[in-house]
Amino acid sequence: MAFVQQEFKTRAEHPPIGAAPVSLAEATAASPTGLPQQWYSIGPGIWELQLNGAPDSDYKSVLQWYEPNTTSVDPCAIITHTYIEEVCYLQGGLTDVTLGQGWGPGAYAYRLPGMKHGPYKSSPEGCLQFVKLVPVDN
Results as ranks from 00 to 15, higher is better:
T10M: 01
E13F: 08
H14R: 14
H14M: 08
P15K: 12
P15H: 10
P16H: 13
P16Y: 02
I17W: 03
I17A: 13
G18M: 13
A20K: 15
P21G: 13
V22E: 04
S23T: 12
L24T: 03
L24K: 04
A25E: 05
A25K: 13
E26P: 01
E26N: 03
A27N: 04
T28F: 04
A29S: 12
A30L: 09
A30Q: 14
A30R: 15
A30T: 11
S31R: 06
S31H: 03
S31I: 01
G34N: 09
G34S: 13
L35R: 15
L35C: 10
L35V: 00
P36F: 00
Q37P: 07
Q37Y: 01
Q38F: 05
W39F: 10
Y40G: 04
Y40M: 11
G43L: 04
G43D: 01
P44D: 05
P44S: 04
G45C: 02
I46H: 01
I46L: 13
W47C: 10
W47A: 12
L49W: 00
L49S: 07
Q50N: 11
L51E: 14
N52Q: 14
G53D: 10
G53K: 04
P55S: 10
S57V: 08
D58E: 08
K60H: 00
K60C: 07
S61Q: 03
S61T: 08
W65H: 05
N69M: 14
T71L: 02
T71S: 07
S72N: 05
V73G: 01
D74G: 08
P75T: 03
C76I: 13
A77G: 15
A77H: 05
I78T: 14
I78P: 01
T80P: 04
T80M: 05
Y83I: 11
Y83M: 10
I84N: 13
I84Y: 02
I84D: 13
L90D: 01
L90W: 01
L90Y: 06
G92T: 10
L94W: 01
V97H: 04
L99F: 00
G102T: 04
G102C: 11
W103S: 09
P105Y: 04
P105E: 15
P105V: 06
G106P: 15
A107P: 06
Y108R: 12
Y108T: 10
Y110Q: 11
Y110S: 13
Y110R: 14
L112H: 09
P113N: 15
K116L: 14
H117M: 15
H117A: 09
